Amino acid sequence: MSNAAERVVVVTGAGSGIGAAVAHRFAAEGATVVVVGRTREKLEGTAAAAPAGGSVLVRTADLTVPEEAEALIASTVAELGRLDVLVNNAGAPSFGTVEAVAPDAWRAVMAVNLDAVYHTSRAAVRHLRATRGCIVNVGSVSGLGGDYGMAAYDAAKGAVVNLTRAMALDHAPEVRVNAVHPGFTLNTGITAGLTADMPVVQSFAGRIPFGRAAEPEEIAGVVAFLAGPDARYVTGAQIPVDGGLGAATGQPRVDV
């Protein structure tokens, strides 16, 4: 595995939240980070706020389109000479039961949360094989269990879980593939503007053994571990970063 200061890292969905935090973490370690998304202004904000250490390059692409995913990876390797880490973070929430979600909305959720992972990984694998690099997929606790009223999102994130396992098997030992599954996290696209004292946040926090929501930087730390040398024998892993939420049965706390 390359020295951190030599690595080229592509982070999708990097305009804000977890993606921006991941990009900043790799930049602080000295990597060259390519931040990808649909909105240049947001990506430029991520680049401008990056800590000293590495360099951050902005690229716009719609990764639900296979040709754009292929062009992104090809141009990155052509310009920078290599690819060491792909972080598939791009995604978007969706609400509704199967009865309420229209077919076109269902397809759109799958395109953003699942198809983009497939397209970008497919384009990247051969380049990662050359560097013995890795893929880290950012899933969700919603892929490890069900939510009320989030049928399409849960289905897409559940598929990311098993896609991660399949890729880990298919591409070992040259390319490691793992997934991080955040729980309720503040300062992301869906939680922008929420603060810890708001009733909705307190409702989530009341279910979490840590008693609070996560911050994007806490997710980024686990992504960085999986992409680093200390995880060189880890592949196919599904790591929840949820403050202990998944350890519970869902029954209420009873003090005895």
Rank of each mutant, 00 (worst) to 15 (best):
V77F: 08
R25F: 07
L169C: 09
D115V: 09
A102I: 10
L194A: 03
D154F: 03
A247L: 00
V35D: 01
A196H: 14
A92H: 14
L163W: 12
H127D: 09
T249H: 12
V22Q: 02
A92I: 11
G17K: 01
P103V: 12
A130G: 10
A102T: 12
V22K: 03
L194E: 03
G211L: 07
A124L: 09
L114T: 07
I18K: 02
Y148P: 03
P51K: 07
V234K: 09
T46H: 13
A69S: 09
N137F: 12
T76K: 03
L63A: 02
E41Y: 01
V201G: 11
V65Q: 07
D104Y: 06
I208T: 11
T64A: 00
V85T: 12
G15P: 08
E79H: 09
N187R: 15
G91Y: 05
L163T: 13
Q251H: 08
G30C: 04
A192E: 15
R129A: 13
Q238C: 10
R212K: 06
E217L: 07
L245T: 03
A124F: 09
I239A: 08
A168D: 12
V98T: 12
L80C: 08
V223P: 07
A102H: 11
A92P: 11
V241N: 04
V33W: 00
D230A: 13
E217N: 09
F225A: 06
L86P: 14
V138L: 05
R129W: 10
G236Y: 00
V98G: 08
A205M: 06
G145F: 09
G145E: 06
D115I: 05
G15Q: 02
L186H: 05
A108W: 02
T64C: 04
A227W: 02
V141I: 15
V8I: 15
V65M: 08
D230P: 10
G236N: 02
L72W: 06
D170S: 15
L186V: 05
A116S: 14
G206K: 04
R232H: 15
A5I: 15
A52K: 15
R122P: 03
D84R: 14
S2M: 11
A111N: 07
M167R: 05
G250V: 10
T97C: 13
N162V: 14
A23F: 06
N89Q: 05
R122G: 04
R207N: 02
E218F: 07
A123F: 11
V22W: 01
G221N: 06
A155F: 04
A192G: 13
N178A: 04
D84I: 10
E215I: 13
A159P: 12
V160E: 02
F26T: 06
V112C: 04
P173R: 06
S121H: 02
M110V: 11
T32I: 05
